[in-house]
Amino acid sequence: MIPPSFDYHAPDTLEEASRLLLANPEAKLLAGGHSLIPMMRFRLAEPAALVDLRRIPGLSGIREEGGSLCIGAMTCESALEKSDLVQSRYPLLADTTRVIADPVVRNLATVGGNVAHADPGNDHPATMLAYRASFVASGPSGRRTIAASDFFTGPFSTCLEEGEILTEIRIPEAGPGSGGAYQKFERKVGDYAVAAVAVQLQLDGGRVAGAGVALTNVGLTAIQAGAAEAALVGSDGGDAALDAAAEAAAAAADPADDHRGSADYKRAVVRVLTHRAASSALARAREAS
């Protein structure tokens, strides 16, 4: 569990960080280090250099601005846990951060790192899909905004280009009648999900006007379950709609057999969790109406 040697850089600006990345094709960005460093210790990742983002100002913080909840990429999970804004208005995000790893990891692990690492077992990607979030990236050719649905291209891979750095995550601002929930089933605390389901709902006059449903760790990337969303939209959120959504989510899952269980089992868990997450999201959305 001893990593091979590597160079270490701690630039002060995004431009400098991008330059270092371009100059060292074998370099990797370092955020909280809680995905990258374990991989280095197992020698599954052997970057020649690390470019630490910690000294670059302005990359962390949580605020509402321009119709979005803006989260700096270097914001750590515990900051989300301690944010009144997140806790009071973004229950799906609040649920998600609480079930990531354990408090010790959450003190260091960053939201940006969680998204950029694109581990199908990471919890934020599904949540971001359900929220219809977008990601701001800064790179050699400037700044761009990427929809969450375009961001995850495969296991551990994203559409970020060489030298590009994720700087901010934007979630549509919570309004009246919105509510969400994250249901994760894990074998023990700190485990990656057997399966998890993110549901974000928008109610309008007692009916579901908008729905986001996405799944964690039951495919090569987080999966947006469009058919499950469709089953909810237009419904009154009754049990029939929830059952239909749960069935559709289970069908959208594409799990593999492993230590956490068989594919059949994981699909069944997705079904159960979708129902539970949707019920809880509905209750919260009604409360916020």
């Binding site: 089933f185 956490r260 269980g261 089992y265 069944a268 079904r271």
Partner: peptide
């Protein structure tokens, strides 16, 4: 494990969907 218990529930028609 949950997976093992669920398999048994499923076999005996006792697994729930919610």
């Amino acid at each position: 494990t949950p997976a093992r218990v669920w398999d048994v529930l499923n076999e005996h028609g006792a697994a729930a969907t919610r």
